[in-house]
């Protein structure tokens, strides 16, 4: 008698089931917990995206005649190719700038005491929680005609006329470098703080300079973080609508502005749908290529 009760769970209605059946029932119940979110995503995420794809296959802005005319119109215009190219180029330039400026900071982070690491991490994360609009506004103040950069350069006598920095690609890339920097630094620091410090000591003990250690030991080992950072910065900067319109102005046209104009100014939804699907496809293509290169380089390292 005592043996049979011991084999059963003493509590709850499930206590009378054999344990494997209870296990299976629990699995099923756990699965079902994801149902509400699945339903929400089906209705509010998947369905809108499918409808967007469907909308792109209509010829007119009243969405009555199905056809391929919107695609033909969008890709028949050389101007749109330039916009796509400029958008991807802006992303690549921002990625390069965040790597050049951010990577050394991640290196320095590794050498800091835990206390200073905490402070630096706080400084890095803080702007991320600050509205993009606020960060964009800050750059207007910095780069404007009477802004900090121009005033300093004038005061130093390096220039005699204020430089035009707003509404130029240079100004936009500088701003995006700061705005997207946390996205580069967080994955980098995450990977680097897991690196074995003995590797650097071993490299130094074997007579390698710190530069050599950097390029032959640290950079290859931090590749996963670097690639992840590049992907995030690229995806974010190519679609940074606010910064692109406010700092880039109306003369620099990137895909997000084009999508906004077509959908909310011209009200040509099929064309806006084509433009936004082109944005998705071109950004995801570059991201896939980058992560393929990243995987290949880390395989090369471990193979």
């Amino acid at each position: 008698m005592s043996i049979t009760t011991a084999a059963h769970d003493p509590s709850g209605p499930s206590g009378h089931l054999p344990s494997f059946a209870r296990e299976a029932r629990l699995r099923l119940a756990e699965w079902q917990l994801a149902l509400p979110l699945s339903l929400a995503f089906a209705a509010l995420f998947l369905a809108p995206l499918l409808l967007l794809v469907a909308t792109s296959f209509f010829n007119d802005d009243k969405i009555t005649q199905p056809g391929f005319a919107s695609w033909a119109k969008f890709f028949g215009d050389p101007f749109n190719y330039k916009v796509i190219f400029d958008t991807l180029l802006l992303g690549l330039k921002t990625v390069c700038a965040t790597v050049v400026v951010g990577y050394p900071l991640a290196l320095v982070y590794m050498d800091l005491s835990p206390r200073l690491q905490k402070v630096l991490l706080f400084i890095i994360v803080m702007p991320m929680l600050l509205s993009v609009v606020v960060r964009t506004f800050a750059w207007i103040v910095v780069l404007g005609r009477e802004g900090v950069v121009n005033q300093t350069l004038l005061w130093l006598g390096l220039i005699s006329e204020p430089l035009r920095l707003l509404q130029t690609e240079l100004g936009l890339v500088i701003s995006l470098t700061q705005i997207e920097m946390p996205l580069m630094l967080l994955p980098l620091i995450s990977v680097m703080s897991r690196l074995d410090p003995n590797l650097r000591d071993a490299s130094a003990a074997l007579g390698a300079s710190r530069w050599r250690t950097l390029f032959t030991v640290i950079v290859p080992l931090s590749m996963p973080g670097l690639v992840a950072g590049c992907l995030l910065v690229f995806a974010s900067s190519t679609t940074a609508f606010i910064s692109q319109t406010v700092i880039g102005g109306v003369r620099l046209i990137y895909l997000p502005l084009l999508i906004w104009q077509q959908s909310l100014v011209v009200y040509n939804w099929p064309l806006a749908a084509v433009a936004s699907l082109s944005l998705v496809v071109s950004v995801l293509t570059v991201i896939a290529a980058l992560s393929y290169l990243g995987r290949r380089s880390s395989r090369h390292l471990h193979g």
């Binding site: 400026v101 900071l105 890095i124």
Partner: peptide, 19 residues
Amino acid sequence: IGGIAILAVLIIVSPVVIA
């Protein structure tokens, strides 16, 4: 490396302070 790292911190912090 140290110089660029200081520049990076400046780029991250100064716009916020100036705003």
